[in-house]
Design a binder for these strands. Structure first.
Lengths: 110, 110
DNA sequence: TAAAGTACCTACTAAATGGTTATAATAATT
DNA sequence: AATTATTATAACCATTTAGTAGGTACTTTA
């Protein structure tokens, strides 16, 4: 009698999907990256581009993304203040993920 | 004097990225779909495949995925119980998203 | 004189997520 | 005879995440 034991390789902390999700799995994260995209976006523009997000979440996520080097922040010492956000090289590399989300959404959900 | 007004198209409830994220943005969701992949996975196998997830979250997410028709559930009326999970056609269509997450993770995070 | 716009920050509340323990029923293993 | 394995559900509390409301400091517009 043979033992049929299925080999399961557990996805631990080195699993690439898990690592990506640790960084990107928030409710708003990928949407913000997608909205910035290849553009230069100011804080207020992003706020208007993403109706429904609270100012707190937007600034919190932007700060997180800057910390994790997905987004560049350029502040001008002017009054009224002017701050521009762009994607870093690393941030640009998340766009294919957002593109797949967009593809799945438009083909199956909308 | 010209007015430079940048046109911003707000991403509302019909934005495909948003619609996808509403369904998939959880911390574990895409990881579970990725683990099931093209296989037939039992509850216990998934539990071992995703170390760190609590039983509660796993069953909660599986129920949600079944409800949203991304996952099929086949329960055998046996004792001890045996339940098999597979991806539906719709669920299979989320795999490209997980693949991009895996790609991003292995190239930039690991 | 008042309101609107700019990019935030802080305190508080609400919701989502996570963890633990207990329960079920029965076959196979120790 | 007791333990382990199986797939859940339910109750409870702790923690994390998200949302709400208000304020700051200054300028321009009405």
């Amino acid at each position: 009698m043979e033992k049929k034991s299925k080999i399961i390789l557990p996805c631990d902390e080195k699993c690439p999907v898990r690592a990506s999700l640790t960084l990107l799995s928030g409710k708003w994260t990928l949407l913000i990256l997608f909205q910035i995209n290849k553009k230069v976006m100011r804080y207020g523009e992003l706020k208007r581009a993403i109706p429904g997000i609270s100012e707190k979440m937007l600034i919190q996520e932007l700060n997180m993304l800057v910390e994790n080097k997905l987004v560049n922040k350029k502040a001008y010492p002017e009054i009224p203040p002017k701050v521009e956000y762009t994607l870093t090289e690393l941030g640009l590399k998340t766009l294919p993920i957002a593109d797949k989300l967009a593809e799945f959404g438009s083909e199956n959900l909308i």
